[in-house]
């Protein structure tokens, strides 16, 4: 091994270990992580767990439509009024929800970090332009904008993710820019400049590692927002009618007046799933707070 990497590796490994230890010092972060792991595993196994095609209209052995059956061994959560298996819908609904949540989180933190870092680092005109753009986007009404966009671009999951990213990055960008401005006051950044580090090197080596926890924090908050948005859009009927998602299930249940018929087995499970995943996203962000502001704990 050459000199350079023997120097860096031990420090990094140690840094990561202490970071993880501090992260999981927060019980909420542990709970959030467990919820995610459970849902991710269920999402992967969804194909096996779902005994039926979630869109398939089922019939009983006697040829009747298997509509609005109560939970039983054959249908763990019963069926919808169109004879679809609710449990199968629920587990298959994990995939679009997690897809929306995670891609939106990555998009929001990447775009927000990029804009925040560029604005804060270069300042001047770059800063003014990016920050005014941020202000404009922050002024857009959230749900109406998503619905209009879905109507314009078509109601696919990708478009929901796209509109969530477009709408949520400014929050992250503003906070990251503020953090960057304090970071820029630190003398070690100036020191890097004096020693001849290029802009890209200063940003990548000296700034990003210090900004990363904050980006991840905004990422995990966005997971919840994205899933909620996707559910809302589907619930309002502007979603993709071919994708079974939790939002779609709620909308289906609502349109079929499941509430008035007391079919709790239909709308409670997807509702709970949304609550769990969204809450888990916020729980995860608590752990990052420990990383960013370790002194808050004492």
């Amino acid at each position: 091994m050459d000199g350079g990497s023997t120097i860096v590796l031990p420090a990094k490994r140690r840094g990561l270990r202490t970071a993880l230890r501090r992260y999981f010092a927060d019980p909420y972060a542990v709970v959030g992580c467990v919820i995610y792991v459970v849902f991710i595993v269920l999402g992967i196994l969804a194909g096996w767990l779902a005994q039926y095609d979630p869109t398939e209209i089922l019939f009983t052995d006697d040829g009747q439509l298997a509509a609005s059956l109560p939970p039983s061994a054959a249908h763990w959560l019963g069926t919808t009024n169109l004879g679809r298996d609710i449990f199968s819908q629920l587990v298959m609904g994990i995939r679009p929800s997690l897809f929306v949540g995670i891609t939106a989180a990555v998009g929001v933190s990447a775009l927000g970090t990029a804009v925040g870092v560029l604005a804060g680092y270069f300042g001047g005109v770059v800063d003014t332009l990016l920050m005014r753009l941020t202000d404009v986007v922050l002024g857009l009404p959230f749900l109406p904008f998503v619905i209009v966009l879905a109507a314009l671009l078509g109601p696919s999951l990708q478009n929901v993710v796209f509109s969530v990213v477009i709408l949520l990055w400014p929050n992250a960008a503003r906070i990251i820019r503020a953090q960057l401005l304090t970071l820029m006051q630190r003398q070690f950044i100036e020191a890097a400049r004096v020693t001849g580090a290029s802009h890209s090197r200063i940003i990548l080596v000296h700034i990003l590692p210090n900004i990363l926890p904050l980006s991840l924090l905004y990422g995990s908050i966005s997971v919840g927002w994205a899933i909620l948005t996707q559910a809302s859009v589907s619930f309002l009927g502007f979603g993709d009618q071919d994708t079974i998602s939790w939002g779609f299930m709620l909308q289906d249940a609502y349109a079929s007046q499941a509430l008035s018929q007391a079919q709790y087995n239909w709308f409670v499970p997807p509702g709970l799933c949304i609550v769990f995943v969204v809450a888990a996203g916020f729980f995860l962000s608590r752990g990052y707070e420990n990383l960013i502001f370790p002194k808050l704990k004492q």
Partner: peptide
């Protein structure tokens, strides 16, 4: 404040 807190002295 003038040494990156994440770096070792050698680095």
């Amino acid at each position: 404040d003038s040494v990156n807190p994440r770096f070792t002295i050698r680095r």
